[in-house]
Design a protein around this nucleic acid. Structure first.
Lengths: 310, 310
DNA sequence: CACCTTCTATGAGCGGAACTCATGCTTCGT
DNA sequence: ACGAAGCATGAGTTCCGCTCATAGAAGGTG
């Protein structure tokens, strides 16, 4: 519980919530715009009122209406916050001259996870150019002159700063049509159906069935591909059931092109990592790493347009 | 770990730390001004740089020097933050017309704890007037028309919203001269020395000695007073050893007029509470309560000028 | 040139702020 | 009268924002 005065400001979160709530004269709508819960906005406005000792909204019925001083304050705030944002944006833009980050990355991860979210980062950092190059095997960061790499596996990279993005969770999925055709709603039925395999990870399905108490030599039969993107297409085309990392099929799950066949996900012991050279102090590398991390935390695509918090 | 962009700002803490560090071109001095550790400022500046992907300071030797873009940014920030502060201050001031908070309070607590800190609250809320009236016994908030009361004891007030400020910790103290005269450096010696008692709490010394494994009928002898302020004066005048709440003798401890005779404090089972009427929605009451709470948390007087955080 | 002082950087760890979830309460529309 | 829509609030959780302790680097001083 804090107080506020001439030399101490309420936190940015409070001010922004109030400004937004004032614009809409509605906590619910503000919550929507800010991607918070109505609960959060309600609390924050209340807290701000308490700190300032002033009534900003009058609660009338199931509605909130700005008081006169609330209206003035909101107007001032809108201007002040915009100025601040401008200052920050400008400082980011002139930070260094335009420079290029070279990024080594796995192909499917790039097209299905990174690129859909990338717009927000590039928007916020107009002076950073991106150059994506796909690599599948570990390589020497400095020799290849990559600034950053996305690595899948373990934290076993020499001379590198590694930050885990997330663990891999493999989910059994198929097209709705396939599910209905095969009645593949439980593991035993699923074991009979055609399975789609990734060549470099033949054991994935076996591991998943093991969790469900099924072991069968014939599980290895089915169709085999050497890239996730092919499996995704194959599954969408009802060629079989696939075991796919959640992160790569967000849009398909959302649109219903693919649906989960079970709730039990297979946690592999590998993870995605951001890698940069141990001695690198380039702040743009840090900014990118940091952004990746926050995007990974946020998880779903819903928020792709809204990186960052404060 | 978060990112920053056109619609999301770094937290106020980060910006303020940077602005201050930029003004001094020194993290240590900034830490001093902001009453933070050097560690905190260092981290915050680094975090800001990472979020923005720009180098704001160049680390040269044991010194930090603003980069060109850092300098620009700091200048912008100083203006923006000042504007924001102005807007907030104005909104607080015009919030309601000047009104008076009537506060019921214990006499020594008022003069020794509240009043020394009160300036900051009044400063931040120019539209609030204060009217302090001393009461020692519980009373009816609404009948007496108090807006707020400070209560000592237990949370047993009917129809009231009570917030605990802090527990009472009684510390054995005396003047340096008294300590030397009586060689009262350990409990056994102290038991022989003249003790100062508060009439409403005769058992305090007995309880304290009990903690230290000493029980003696004669402990009740000594000098008796009915207000803490008298005991404080008596102790300062070397009339005896006193068992006093820390909160009431901060300045004496700091200046060395009184010194602790032991490290073991006596925690009584009573506490200080802020009390306001259950149904009260006056935001100024909340603001005052909130401020009291933050002042209590901060503890020592050192920070009296710096209430609140963001 | 060794020493001490004075700055910043960094690993570890903790408390509390800032959320979410679930639910209750009030009002408005039909 | 009933349901929908909106704000308030208790409880619980995550992780930011700090501190403490210590390392490391660079100047200042005899």
């Amino acid at each position: 519980m804090h107080s506020v005065g001439h030399h101490n400001l309420p936190s940015y979160a409070l001010l922004r919530s109030f400004e937004c709530a004032a614009r809409h004269e509605s906590f619910t709508q503000a919550a929507e715009e800010l991607h918070l819960t109505q609960s959060a906005v309600s609390r924050q406005v209340k807290e701000l009122e308490d700190m300032m000792g002033a009534t900003l909204f009058r609660r009338v019925g199931r509605r909130v209406v700005l008081t006169e001083s609330g209206r003035r304050f909101a107007a001032d705030l809108a201007v002040d916050l915009e100025n601040l944002r401008q200052s920050v944006a400008r400082a980011i833009a002139v930070g260094e001259r335009i420079s290029t980050l070279r990024i080594g990355i796995l192909p499917t991860f790039a097209s299905r996870w990174l690129i859909p979210r990338l717009a927000t980062f590039l928007n916020d950092h107009p002076n950073i150019e991106i150059r994506l190059e796909t690599r599948t095997l570990p390589f020497d960061l400095t020799r290849e002159r990559f600034d950053v790499a996305i690595h899948f596996g373990k934290a076993d990279w020499p001379d590198a700063r590694m930050t885990k993005l997330f663990d891999e969770e493999m989910l059994p999925v198929a097209s709705p049509r396939f599910r209905d055709m095969q009645m593949a709603t439980e593991p035993t039925r699923l074991a009979q159906a055609p399975l789609l395999h990734l060549i470099t990870r033949e054991s994935a399905w076996i591991d998943w069935f093991a969790i469900n108490g099924i072991s069968d030599r014939r599980l290895l039969s089915g169709r085999h591909f050497d890239q996730f993107s092919m499996i995704i297409s194959a599954a969408a085309a009802s060629l079989g059931a696939a075991l796919l990392p959640k992160y790569l099929i967000e849009s398909e799950l959302e649109s219903g092109i693919l649906i989960p066949l079970s709730d039990t996900a297979l946690k592999t012991h590998n993870s995605y990592f951001v890698v940069s050279a141990a001695g690198d102090v380039n702040p743009q590398v840090n900014a990118f790493t940091r952004w990746l991390l926050s995007a990974a935390r946020r998880g779903s695509m819903h928020w792709a347009r809204h990186d960052g918090r404060l």
